[in-house]
């Protein structure tokens, strides 16, 4: 389990977009109002209507699908929490985008030297012992940063003390095997803004279940093929020898 996490409490969010602004500044992007996640918007505050809002950002999965599928390990999970991307390694195959269960990674489609873009959980700040820029900027405490363990406990307390307001589960405790971004969902907000069908287990185990068998399959299959070659070759040689014998007898 990773050390740090972000807790987003939907019921406290007032839609001021301070997190968007702080994020853009931290990542040296021109300030703008996000209209969804894209290469220049790593977080997005969605207006759900009726004073309800939802934040979107990379969930920083505990066992990230994106990192598991990346052929060159350009995406890596740090034990601190962040899942980060390395420009030096990436080949631009976009398998991470295909596989991410939260539909997060974004791509610079119109660049000849494209980068993959997603929230890096302000890994450079964490390394200096500082919280993420979005958490620091949030004026209402809707986005907070801290130890994952502590935030889980905090979330549970809030839900238990006010079950009328909150849905009973912490989003991100189980989703895709658990994430480093945790969300408390308001009963009035609905769940339509959440990605559909996120499985409650980590996805990398599905392909690993196939891949881990390869070291066993390869030798057996190799021996089998070699054996077939040897056997049929012998059969042919024997047939030829028999043919020759017959020829001699005649």
């Amino acid at each position: 389990m990773s050390v740090y996490a972000i807790l987003f409490d939907q019921t406290l969010c007032v839609g001021c977009r301070a997190c968007e602004e702080a994020c853009q500044q931290e990542n040296h992007q021109p300030p703008h109002q996000a209209e969804g996640l894209d290469a220049e918007s790593l977080t997005w505050v969605e207006d759900l209507g009726d004073e309800n809002y939802a934040r979107h950002l990379c969930m920083h999965c505990e066992n990230p699908t994106c990192a598991s599928v990346c052929p060159v390990a350009a995406l890596q999970k740090s034990p601190l929490g962040p899942v980060t991307w390395s420009a030096e390694r990436c080949i631009g195959c976009r398998y991470c985008m295909l596989a991410c269960p939260f539909h997060v990674p974004r791509y610079q489609w119109n660049s000849p030297n494209p980068e993959l873009r997603k929230c890096q959980m302000c890994a450079h700040r964490l390394a200096q012992g500082r919280p993420t820029a979005c958490a620091e900027a949030c004026p209402t405490g809707a986005t907070t940063f801290g130890r994952r363990r502590t935030l889980l406990r905090e979330g549970r307390n809030r839900i238990e003390s006010d079950p009328e307001t909150y849905l009973e589960t912490i989003y991100g405790r189980q989703e895709a095997g658990g994430t480093s971004v945790l969300m408390l969902l308001g009963r009035t907000c609905g769940t339509a803004h959440l990605p559909a069908n996120v499985p409650p287990y980590d996805l990398p185990r599905l392909t690993w279940g196939v891949l881990e068998k390869l070291p066993l399959i390869i030798p057996v299959w190799g021996v089998f093929l070699g054996g077939v070659y040897w056997l049929t070759q012998r059969r042919e040689a024997v047939a030829r020898a028999e043919g020759a014998e017959k020829g001699e007898q005649q």
Binding site: S68, V69, C70, P71, V72, A73, A74, R89, C90, I91, G92, C93, R94, Y95, Y107, N113, P114, L116, P204, T207, W208, V210, L211, L214
Partner: peptide
């Protein structure tokens, strides 16, 4: 043509990720 950063196509040679199916296919 399809890879975004094709000049890195040889990277699976030096950066390994045995958990990736794409790594194995490569």
């Amino acid at each position: 043509v399809d890879l975004g950063r094709p000049w890195n196509i040889w990277h699976p040679l030096i950066f390994w990720n045995p958990h990736s199916v794409m790594f194995e296919v490569g």
